[in-house]
Design a protein around this nucleic acid. Structure first.
Length: 269
DNA sequence: ATGGTCGCGAGGCGA
């Protein structure tokens, strides 16, 4: 069988609900990894999503952040938060999806934005936010490394808040070492690649400079001044069975759009 | 231009 897995930073599930439900019905992924749902779990719009045939694992938070996993198949072994990281913010949820004749582990991750980089003249709390981002990445790497010992299909999708290569940003020269394109952030992200996880979009589309996020400000989407900061990463075992990966820009052709586009992959099971 | 535009929640913060 072949299944479709999508990741999407929706920037509030409630503000996005109408368009999201249409997209969900039309796209019909077997598994959806959501970030920035911006609601506590109790207020997540479960009913209309369940009506479309989805089970849900929701790790919400008031006002900010919040991640979730939707699945047409049973959701088991749910992990909330990165192990060994006492996080006040809801940014990581992982689960085992029980497919008919197999299982696949998936995670939805929302890496901290970082506030600003450690360049000269930044405020103390801003450097704290950047350090929090670095710490989060370190714990994510440690956990991802440990998961490789399972030797199973493991998919990590989400908003990593870093563009990895020059073609992943609209102007690599002017953005050099700015937030989300800083060498320290790339180093953290590349640790995941170097230990064996594959960046699906980049592996299947080596030269495509597509973006996944555009700032609401400055008419960025129309000018295509974006960055590719949303990824689907796959463990080596899963990597061998990926058949496609695309960024679904059409999902942003709605009145109330997110500032992120979904990323969708297909995998043979 | 130390701005801009969203979402949350009801003023200012976070992105």
């Amino acid at each position: 069988m072949q299944i479709k897995i999508a990741t999407w930073n929706v920037n509030s599930i409630k503000a996005r609900l109408d368009g999201f439900l249409i997209w969900l019905k039309n796209t019909s992924p077997e598994i959806v990894l959501l970030q920035e749902i911006k609601t506590i779990s109790e207020n997540f719009p479960k009913d209309p999503i369940a009506d479309l045939g989805y089970n849900m694992a929701i790790f919400g938070q008031k006002t900010y952040n919040g991640v979730a996993i939707l699945s047409k198949f049973p959701i088991e072994d749910i992990v909330e938060n990165l192990p060994h990281f006492s996080d006040q913010q809801s940014r990581y949820i992982e689960a085992l999806i029980a497919l008919p004749d197999a299982a696949i582990r998936v995670a939805s991750v929302y890496v901290p934005n970082g506030g600003s980089t450690l360049d000269v003249g930044q405020k103390i709390n801003e450097t704290t936010k950047f350090q929090y981002k670095m710490d989060f990445f370190t714990k994510l790497s440690e956990h991802a490394k440990k998961r490789l010992e399972f030797n199973e299909s493991f998919i990590i999708g989400g908003d990593f808040n870093v563009a990895n290569e020059n073609i992943d940003v609209y102007d690599s020269a002017s953005l050099k070492n700015t937030l989300c394109f800083h060498d320290d952030e790339k180093f953290q992200f590349r640790k995941l690649l170097n230990m064996g996880y594959g960046d699906l979009f980049r592996n299947l589309n080596p030269y495509d400079g597509n973006f996944s996020w555009w700032d609401y400000r400055g008419n960025s989407l129309k000018l295509n001044k974006g960055m590719r900061i949303d990824y689907i990463l796959a463990s080596p075992l899963a990597m061998d069975n990926i058949t496609s990966c695309l960024i679904d820009n059409k999902a942003l052709e709605v009145e109330k759009r997110s500032d992120h586009a979904p990323v969708i992959c297909e995998i043979k099971i």
